[in-house]
């Protein structure tokens, strides 16, 4: 496990050190792609956003000031903003037929939910959340950021983050009720 700090790695990246680039990517790339995937709903867009984030790191590495901010939090901030920008552009051109539909693929009660189908339905439910609620859930629940960090990234208060999370989880509870019941049932059967 490389214990070099992110700040030190960024400084080395600015000097063109390939190994530091690799370590920084090993540490953060998968998380940033995961953020993009949950915000945007597909892997290709998620990788495009992650690429844009890291290209900015490469470009601005020599201007990074150690101690000014947590590098990981800044990556999340850049990635979240790029995702929200994409969602805003996408909203301007969205076709209603392209919206994820949770009803058409609902599993019947007599069959066990396939794992991949469940994943797809959770992803679709996330995509149906309003953008800022989705961002709050992704940053806080999936990325594990503190409510303070999430509030900082979304430029709202901690109380507002909590409100976004509550509303998001309420909608998810409703839209994924069938899936939740099915999952609980399958756990009981396997217990």
């Amino acid at each position: 496990m490389d214990e070099t700090s992110d700040d030190e790695l960024v400084a080395a990246v600015a000097k063109g050190d390939e190994r530091s680039c690799r370590v920084l990517m090993d540490r953060h790339l998968a998380r940033i792609v995961a953020l993009g995937r949950r915000m945007l709903g597909n892997q290709a867009d998620a990788e495009e956003v992650a690429q844009e984030v890291f290209l900015r790191v490469w470009t601005h590495a020599e201007r990074w000031q150690p101690g000014r901010a947590q590098f990981g939090t800044w990556l999340h901030r850049v990635a979240a903003n790029l995702c929200l920008d994409r969602l805003r552009r996408r909203r301007a051109t969205v076709d209603i037929d392209e919206m994820p539909d949770l009803e058409s693929g609902a599993p019947g009660p007599d069959r066990q939910l396939e794992e991949s189908e469940l994943s797809a339905r959770v992803e679709a439910a996330l995509q149906l959340l309003p953008e800022r609620q989705r961002a709050a859930v992704v940053l806080s629940h999936y990325q594990g950021l503190s409510n303070t960090e999430t509030a900082e990234i979304l430029e709202v208060t901690v109380e507002a983050v909590e409100s976004l999370l509550s509303r998001a989880r309420r909608q998810l509870r409703t839209s994924l009720a069938t899936e939740r019941d099915e999952l609980l049932r399958s756990r009981e059967m396997s217990a």
């Binding site: 390939e18 790339l29 990788e47 290209l55 490469w58 470009t59 794992e115 959770v122 998810l172 999952l183």
Partner: peptide, 27 residues
């Protein structure tokens, strides 16, 4: 129970091509 369902959201590792592109573009 809701957390259990949310944990099933898909996650994919970054592609090797992405890592290669980024390394190629490094300073």
């Amino acid at each position: 129970a809701l957390d259990g369902v949310l944990a099933r959201a898909p996650v994919e590792a970054p592609s090797a091509a992405l890592a290669e592109r980024l390394l190629a573009a490094r300073p």
